[in-house]
Write a protein that binds this DNA or RNA. Structure first.
Length: 278
DNA sequence: CCCGATTCCTGTAGGC
DNA sequence: TGCCTACAGGAATCGG
């Protein structure tokens, strides 16, 4: 499911094919997504040109400029939810079930949004996208210098929340969902149930490094495909075979052989090794 | 402020 | 075999 590495994989996959292209037609087959598709999105997009794609947290940002003047006309804020994917199709390629939105481009390409569970959305941001509250409240990018063990330590003092939901809080650090939180905690040797406020600075340094390591490795592998995630050019991600704990409860720990345990933290399944993670 | 619970959605897995 | 239920989960929101 799309966490940061999957969104980044999508961005890299589609960017070369959509940047600089003009949108000639927009087809919305299902407007009832997590956030309803803005009613005026079609008229705003048709004729506009796509600028340089970027990513913030798990959001894909698609800037649009006026084809004539080059002036910014706004930005699409796209979230893939848990089952969404954006991929390239060719003109004439028939939509399948759950292909909710097509952006038809002037070279015959189609940017096609597919989302069976409709937890994703696309919304319209006017000129100054940083003012949007969904972006303004976000913590630092995990692969930036602003994220480190010191930040985790400072924000966690006197907090009794378990470290796993703490790490998944977007105000702490963005882009870390259930899969990569579990994997990073395994790599750092930290029990996901441990209260965030009772973890040392040294162990948070290890955790921050583990978050960076697992996200960078997942991006290299094209993300994690559990069921149906595909990158921008339609290929699955290959990080699943590198997973140490996520989805492996009852199976042996790859490090020590102990049976991996399953607990619920913050209403999320959390798998860990009771031997390796303390 | 902190944190747990609830909500949205649908395909799939598991139980009986 | 087929029906039913539980579960998957990001993030906004609510309530204690």
């Amino acid at each position: 499911m799309p966490e940061l590495p999957e969104v980044e994989t999508t961005r890299r996959g589609i960017a070369p094919h959509v940047e600089g292209r003009q949108i000639t037609e927009v087809i919305v087959r299902q407007a009832r997504l997590r956030v309803p598709v803005p009613v005026d999105m079609v008229e705003r997009l048709v004729g506009a040109r796509i600028g340089a794609l970027s990513r913030r947290a798990k959001y894909l940002l698609v800037p649009l400029v006026d084809s004539e003047s080059g002036d910014s006309v706004g930005t699409l804020l796209w979230h893939l939810g848990m089952s969404g994917s954006l991929r390239l199709a060719r003109l004439g390629e028939l939509p399948k079930k759950h292909d909710h939105i097509d952006l038809v481009l002037d070279d015959g390409g189609i940017l096609r949004y597919h989302d069976p569970r409709r937890f994703g959305f696309v919304d319209w941001l006017a000129e100054d996208s940083t003012a949007d509250p969904r972006l303004a409240r976000l913590g630092p990018e995990p692969l930036s210098d602003a994220f480190d063990g010191g930040r985790l330590f400072d924000l966690s003092r006197r907090r009794r929340l378990a470290v796993k939901p703490f790490l998944m809080d977007n105000a702490v650090v963005v882009g870390v969902g259930n899969i990569y939180a579990a994997e990073a905690l395994f790599l750092a040797g930290i029990d996901p149930r441990r209260a965030a406020g009772r973890i040392s600075r040294k162990r948070f340094d290890r955790l921050a490094a583990a978050v960076r390591e697992v996200l960078a490795a997942a991006i290299t592998q094209g993300g994690t495909t559990l069921r149906d995630f595909v990158g921008g050019t339609g290929e699955p991600g290959y990080f699943k075979q590198r997973l140490n704990v996520y989805g492996r409860d009852g199976e042996p720990c790859r490090r020590c052989g102990a049976e991996l345990r399953l607990v619920t933290l913050g209403q999320r399944a959390s798998v860990f090794c009771g031997q390796c993670q303390t």
